[in-house]
């Protein structure tokens, strides 16, 4: 088994390679504006570092968001195209599930917790978990004030909005190493590689024609 995993739904462009037993190589760069530039070189890097060839790949795991659309699509179109050309399966995973699985929380003490990431426009993508593996609500997109909570909140969304989420916990961003482990061990719900947009495109239908004749 050789699983290539990556996620582009947050500012992190994160790539990992897993052989079924352990993570062989990782590459992570946090830069919210450069997903399109960084992902493919990241994939080339992990293959090279692991001494693996693209033809050795047996599957792809990709974060399906929710996340800012432009970066999210880079991951998904890369996964779908690679899966098609190499004729290997593509497994989608909710990005928030990856963060939840890595939550730096003491489950015995905290009970349920939230995962929140930056949805821009002063909103967060979020979901509630009863433990690291069990999503009980979400994913949703909301204004922080609408979902403010004293509970532990994992992910960058918490640190961006400390008033709404005073009890922040790591990690800030998902890691493809976690994503790869989860999929390789079958310990996360697997989805189709379809983006979780959660928002409709911003569009307005045209209004009535405006007059071009000035009043005289």
């Amino acid at each position: 088994m050789l699983l290539l995993a990556f996620d582009t739904a947050t500012p992190a462009v994160t790539v990992a390679l897993h052989d079924g037993r352990s993570v062989l190589a990782t590459s992570t760069i946090v830069d919210a504006m450069r997903h399109g530039e960084l992902l493919a070189p990241g994939i080339a890097t992990v293959l090279r570092e692991a001494g693996a060839d693209r033809s050795d790949l047996t599957g792809i795991a990709v974060g399906v968001g929710p996340g800012p659309f432009t970066g999210l699509r880079v991951g998904l179109v890369t996964a779908r195209t690679l899966g098609h050309v190499l004729d290997i399966p593509v497994h989608g995973v909710c990005t928030l599930d990856v963060l939840a699985a890595a939550a730096e929380v003491d489950e015995g003490q905290v009970g349920s917790f939230l995962v929140a990431t930056d949805a821009r426009r002063k909103e967060v993508y979020w979901a509630r978990y009863s433990d690291r593996r069990t999503r009980v609500d979400g994913p949703h997109v909301s204004r922080p004030a609408e979902v403010a909570t004293p509970d532990v909140v994992v992910g960058r969304g918490a640190t961006l909005y400390p008033d709404a989420f005073p009890n922040a916990a790591g990690p800030l961003d998902p890691s493809a190493a976690d994503l790869a482990r989860l999929v390789a061990t079958g310990s996360v719900p697997v989805l189709e590689p379809v983006p979780l947009y959660l928002r409709r495109p911003d569009v307005a239908e045209p209004t009535a024609r405006k007059s071009v004749l000035t009043a005289r």
């Binding site: 992902l39 493919a40 179109v77 996964a79 779908r80």
Partner: peptide, 9 residues
């Protein structure tokens, strides 16, 4: 992104 994936693959 798709073209890069193709070139890589």
């Amino acid at each position: 992104a798709s073209a890069k994936a193709l070139a890589l693959g």
